[in-house]
Design a protein around this nucleic acid. Structure first.
Length: 106
DNA sequence: GTTATGACTCGTA
DNA sequence: ATACGAGCCATAA
């Protein structure tokens, strides 16, 4: 039988993040039992442009946007449109917007 | 098989 | 706050 690849599992997890919430690469890695956060980033980097996947809801440790260039702006704009506010230095206010999934859903 | 790459993270300065 | 270095390790070439 065919088992889901790590990438697929990452995508599935990202899809569960509700609008207006964010999570981090490291948190997803931990949740899925993936050895390092870099792999989560690799999965997201591999998605096709225009994918419906809400990839913008994944940020780096401390709420930092890790994308560079144009992508960073797109991510911030999308998040702000969902009501996610940023603190200084472009950090998401994780205290308020981190998605605590699994335990409570939504 | 080997290298190179990186949307990570953390510690140190 | 910024900068650098070092672990990290799956994927792609």
């Amino acid at each position: 039988m065919k088992r889901a690849t790590d990438f697929e599992r990452v995508y599935r997890e990202v899809r569960r993040i509700p609008a207006g919430r964010v999570t981090t690469y490291g948190a997803i890695a931990r949740r899925l039992g993936i050895s390092n956060a870099r792999q989560v980033g690799a999965a997201l980097r591999a998605i096709a442009p225009g994918s419906p996947l809400p990839w913008h809801r994944v940020v780096g440790a401390g709420g930092a946007i890790r994308l560079r260039g144009h992508g960073a702006l797109t991510q911030r704009l999308r998040l702000e449109r969902e009501g996610v506010s940023f603190r200084s230095r472009g950090r998401v206010d994780l205290r308020r917007f981190t998605w605590r999934g699994g335990a409570g859903r939504t």
